[in-house]
Computed example of a mutant assay.
Amino acid sequence: MAEFDLEDLKEIYNNPEIIDYLVAKDIIKKDKFIDQYKYEEELYSLQKELSEIQQQLISSGQKVLLIFEGRDAAGKGGSIERITQYLNPKKARVVSLAKPREDEAQQWYFQRYIAHLPQEGELVFFDRSYYNRAVVEPVFEFCTAKQYKSFIKQVVDLENIWHTEGMIVIKLFLSISKKEQEERLESRKQEVLKQWKVGSLDQQAQEKWPVYSKYIKAMLGKTASKNNPWIEIITDDKKIARLAILKVIINRLSEKDQHKIPEIVKMHS
């Protein structure tokens, strides 16, 4: 289907004659067009709502840390892109740290992440985080069993300290089915504009699926707390998932259940 922005979609949606013409010319499929319009309309409404909440957070000086974890190709980057699209960039940052340098590897494990925590009135999005040590590192034996156990022991206490100090921590884990992951990884290989997303570890995501599952289950069970629960979201349908993520964030930041959360969302606390 041809791509349209929200204004184009709205104009076409409100004019049945244009819809019929575009369908006749095989430019759009009517059902897909209507679904796309409704998605874009709801997405924009939620983005606008989050933008308004951000202004309140800036005024109050509230610090917010949003952690995005998930399996490879689960949609972390794309979700963050939609969420931050209309936020004030002066008070919203995305942090995606590369492999630690040699000197960083000698530091306390959390040290390089703490340097990126939010300042007053700021939202910080971790596109992967210190939770690498809970899943990716043990899966590929990048850390020792002792380091893994030390992390599991420390992380809940550390996040509870942040909570006590007034920081809001929202931890999101994006789940994906094995079949959907396989299809997305293959799509990345085939599409030139997405090939940069394919990393050496991605190649083994399918092969090591059971090992990943073991450590993911342990992480969701051992590092969730009442103050800082994990929110797991199934992302096989990207559009539904993105809307769900926005609703979860808005509900948490507004401290109201303004939006009904779909069944693809599961709380671990």
Score class of each variant (00 low, 15 high):
Y215D: 06
G221T: 15
R242I: 10
V139R: 00
K266Y: 06
K208R: 15
A115F: 10
K76N: 09
K266V: 03
I58L: 03
D157L: 15
K197L: 02
P229W: 01
P118Q: 06
Y113G: 09
D257F: 01
K194E: 02
E52Q: 07
S51I: 00
S254A: 14
I161W: 12
E104A: 14
S60D: 09
E17G: 01
E255L: 10
K222P: 09
I216C: 09
D236G: 05
N14K: 13
I114G: 03
Q54N: 01
K76S: 04
K153A: 14
E186Y: 00
K197I: 01
I231F: 06
P100L: 11
I264Y: 00
K256V: 10
H268V: 02
Q111A: 15
S225A: 12
K153V: 03
E17Q: 14
K146H: 04
I18A: 09
V248L: 12
Q85H: 13
M219V: 10
L97E: 14
Q181L: 02
K48H: 07
V198G: 01
I216M: 10
N228H: 06
Y212R: 02
A145D: 10
K90R: 13
I176D: 06
V155C: 07
D20Y: 04
E207M: 10
K260V: 08
D202Y: 05
S96M: 10
